[in-house]
Amino acid sequence: MSDTALLTVRDLAIRIRGAQRNLVEEVSFSVAPGETLCLVGESGCGKSLTALALMGLLASPPLEIAEGAAEFEGQDLLTLPRTERAKLSGNRMAMIFQEPMSALNPAIRIGEQIAESVRRHQGLGHREAEARALEMLRRVRIPAPEKRLREFPHQLSGGMRQRAMIAMALANDPALIIADEPTTALDVTIQAQILDLMRALRDEAGTALIMITHDLGVVAEMADKVAVMYAGRVVEAGPMAEIFANPQHPYTIGLMSSMPSFGARTERLVTIPGMVPPIATMAPGCRFASRCPFRAAQCAQVPPLTALDGHSVACWRAPLERLEEPA
């Protein structure tokens, strides 16, 4: 991990208080200023829990951070007292949620919601805060921003609400934005617009971005680095181009095969069999083993994340082509 990292997460583990198994385990990654990291995985893989833990939004109890550290601008986010945390959230680091309708306050006008956050963190006066809110709506290219400022969230379309939430997240010039499936609820043309916008704003301001998504298409468009998660663990991580050109973990390969590809139309998709078993009932060892076509005896041990070909992978059987060679 580089010295210049903005955020460094080490061995993060999250569990339900009193439970035997961790829901998220040994999750480590770092993000440099201006860099985009995508956390990729399906429901239940722990990508959202990881983000919530970083934002201090974990529902605790019952959830608790069992282990780990997350260093952000010289402070450990996970042990920070509540008051210090509150100074960071929405200020140095901000979050964009999937569903802007449930993240925005339905009873407060859009402009006021943005202004509130700049008043609080930057100590701006009423007028200045409102001017800032208007400027932010312009920056996220909302048409007729003067009018939108006075509207309530329900008066905006889904795409416009997501723009308003991005405006809110960026209002205090954060160093890091965590976006949890920011375009999943949107139509494709609107998704393309929001992705373009996020890319432009990120490059303008040099903001670091952690983007949580299940969509490998979004990953290919946005990411510098990727961490693929399965059942609470990082199974493969590395530079984005490397993950696509040289996928090593059977789960990553299976996930890519499951997507209707844009090459030749094939008759059938090559799928991953079954589904994620509940974490409490998982056999020890590799958590993907029960669905993996390459499983072997050694998979009863947890495979460590090890360097291989310029990125890292947690699989005893990688590289898979070795299996073809005669013993």
Binding site: T189, Q193, D196, V219, E221, A241, M259, F262
Partner: peptide
């Protein structure tokens, strides 16, 4: 054109 393609070699143009 708006479909995000799962292939970094095919990054689409701006919407």
């Amino acid at each position: 054109a708006a479909i995000p393609l799962p292939d970094p070699a095919m990054r689409r143009a701006e919407a």
